Amino acid sequence: MITIKKPLVSLATIGLSAMIWAAPASAEKVMKIAHMNPGGPFESHAGAMVTVFKSLVEAGTNGSIKVQHFPDGQLGKDNEVIDQVRMGVVQSSISSAGGVAQHYPPVGVFDLPFAFPNIATAHDVINLDSDFGKMFAEDMHAKTGLKVIGLLDSGGFFALTNSKKEVTTLDDMNGLKIRTMTLPTHETIINSVGGKATPLPWAEVYTALQTGVADGQMNPVPTISFAKFEEVQPYMTLTNHIITPYVWMINEKFYDGLTPEEQRVVDYAAKAAVDAGRGVSRLIEASDTRGLPYLASKMKISTLSEEERQKFAAATQPAVKKLIEEQYGDEGMKLMQALESSIEKASN
């Protein structure tokens, strides 16, 4: 049986609730969207998504829904904002797997290492239109009450960075302290290759890398870029070991309170916004000023040989599958098998 976290009400949340609800009587048509990323449309995929969504929704509803954008963790950490969405204090959030896991642990099934062969397959599977995407959204809704209106990757395949040495073999990972999200799957991946998983919240990562609390971290290239990790991490390895989801949620009561036409606008606007977010991630990744070409001028970038990639996969896949079976039981295994089937279907 999977235990799903119930919303926690802290004094800070109560105070924030009072502040946010101190608004005009028309507040029921105000849709607040929060996320942890930079807010500019060309700075992050989440920033692009909200920019596109806001434009389409406000125009498509003739202003009956007003969208307010809260980037950069203004309303709290990922898991705290999801609490606020569940309570209706905030209407929507675009959240990382680390935040989602504290409310819906089975999100960890996405972390099956080396499961996705390429980014095109990932786009097809990490998508509300895929068989797996529909199954995932329905299960998450049933267990948390949160309606999923968007599902996409968190910025691309994960790369590994560190301050100690070039990593090109499995043996190079031995003893490296690698910051992970607070996800058991991520911790298992690092520990299974000989590293020392160091789970930390996002707000603490740069300082941890700067001070040596952690030697390295793993994230997609756009995240590494906007976080300026090249300032404190001289080495990067394009491991492409996992690609995690960003889950876009909306408070069900707020959504149900919209008119059918407003719901139609919100649905198509979210779909268009997700497409924009994917596009911006790919552009940032390839950009001379912010992507891999830029980072290559600041860091030593390496890739894994096919032989070493197979060694990493052999070390990590069984460990993660075992964890999913132990922690999430039959439900987790069913989700993981559905994910693998969806990947196979998208790859053919």
Rank of each mutant, 00 (worst) to 15 (best):
S287D: 12
P41C: 11
D153E: 12
L8P: 05
R179C: 08
L200A: 07
E308G: 08
G291H: 01
L128A: 12
A142E: 14
L112K: 07
I301Q: 02
S93C: 15
K271W: 04
I190R: 00
Y294V: 01
K29C: 11
L176K: 03
P201H: 03
E43L: 08
L238F: 07
E80G: 14
I33V: 13
P41Q: 10
G88N: 06
D275Y: 03
A22Q: 15
I14P: 03
L146K: 07
L304H: 05
K32S: 07
T185G: 02
A296Y: 02
L170H: 03
R86D: 07
M218C: 05
Q74L: 12
S287I: 02
Q263G: 10
L11T: 13
V320S: 01
H69V: 13
I149W: 01
I2G: 03
F42T: 15
P220I: 03
Q337S: 15
I324G: 01
K143Q: 14
T161Q: 04
S92D: 05
R179E: 12
Q317N: 05
I189W: 00
V221Q: 00
T161M: 06
K228C: 06
D330S: 14
K322H: 09
N79C: 14
K54G: 09
S44F: 05
L170F: 08
T3R: 10
E58M: 12
Q263L: 05
F114S: 09
A313Y: 07
H35S: 09
L183W: 00
W248L: 05
K143M: 11
N240G: 10
V81H: 00
D215T: 05
A208Y: 03
G257E: 08
T180V: 05
K147A: 11
S342P: 04
L128R: 13
E308W: 03
P113G: 14
E331K: 13
V52I: 15
M336C: 10
P24L: 15
D153H: 13
A159N: 04
A296I: 02
G279F: 05
A272W: 02
F42M: 13
P117Q: 12
V265F: 00
L128I: 11
M173V: 03
